[in-house]
């Protein structure tokens, strides 16, 4: 197991514990983006040492339903104490169930879809205005891309050549109620985004070498924003939650906890505390 794989595993354990404490919520949307966020925060993609500087890199989880992954990463990089993860969904805590700006490191509330990518055009444009090296990374859901505002932002970023903007599409093919393809036609993805002026990359969203090399490639692209289509599995890592629409907004129940713990190699009694 590589260091990044170990971190991703630990983040999955955090997620399982957070939903155990919460008792409900969007566990599967968090699990699909664990490797993407692990690569960003722990794979030397973001320049973490600059986070207190004005030209820091931005991370925006536009699909705020996956925020357990983001909160875990932020707690592991010093934005707030690890202990605080125990407050997920709890009264008096800052850790609201969908990404909230009350959490250090989260610049805006997301989960209402089609917002984060628009906000990101502003941080990317500001970096251009100030001529600094800040880059903006956005995680976009594939269902989320049905929002019209996503395409307002896509058209704007392409037209203004925001090559400091990298959008990662969490391509898990599922949205809240069904498979994306049962609801609409969103292919051909590559041609659509290219037509809006974007450079499109694709990779396995659970494979670290593939993700890291895609992020490196994205940094080298000039004159165009980058869409990285990361092929993922919703619910990844908890077998019975994988690729199942009914798992969009729920946590395990009863004996499912034993099974989930067994799959992540922890004891059920460890679940209650982070």
């Amino acid at each position: 197991m590589t260091e990044l794989e170990r971190i991703a595993h630990d983040i999955r354990v955090d997620i399982l514990k957070m939903y155990y404490i919460a008792g409900w919520g969007h566990m599967a949307p968090a699990l699909s983006c664990v490797e993407i966020f692990t690569a960003l925060y722990f794979g030397d993609v973001l320049r973490m040492e600059r986070r207190s500087e004005e030209d820091h890199d931005w991370v925006i989880m536009s699909k705020g339903h996956g925020c357990a992954t983001w909160y875990s990463c932020l707690s592991r990089t010093g934005y707030f104490p690890r202990e605080d993860l125990n407050g997920f969904y709890q009264a008096g805590s800052k850790l609201v169930g969908l990404a909230s700006p009350s959490v250090p490191g989260v610049p805006l509330p997301t989960g209402s879809l089609g917002h984060g990518i628009c906000f990101a055009t502003g941080t990317a444009l500001a970096a251009k205005c100030k001529k600094n090296a800040s880059r903006t990374y956005v995680l976009l859901g594939d269902g989320e891309a049905q929002e019209g505002s996503v395409w307002e932002a896509a058209m704007f970023a392409g037209a203004h050549k925001l090559d400091n903007l990298c959008v990662i599409l969490d391509r898990n093919h599922l949205q809240a109620s069904d498979w994306v393809e049962n609801i609409t036609v969103d292919e051909p993805l590559r041609e659509r985004w290219e037509a809006f002026g974007w450079h499109v990359l694709e990779c396995d969203g659970h494979d670290f070498p593939a993700l890291l090399s895609a992020f490196e490639e994205a940094k080298a692209v000039q004159g165009k924003p980058v869409l990285l289509v990361a092929h993922t599995v919703k619910g990844k890592g908890i077998s019975f939650a994988e690729s199942r629409a009914e798992w969009h907004s729920r946590a395990p129940r009863g004996e499912e906890w034993d099974k989930a713990c067994a799959e992540l190699g922890i004891e059920v009694k460890e679940l209650g505390r982070i």
Binding site: E54, P107, G114, T123, L125, A126, A127, E152, A153
Partner: peptide, 18 residues
């Protein structure tokens, strides 16, 4: 351009950047 939603949110990103 004719995209008020993106403009409002993008302005928040600009403001977040100072």
């Amino acid at each position: 351009g004719i995209s008020e939603a993106n403009m409002a949110s993008s302005a928040a990103g600009l403001a977040a950047s100072g």
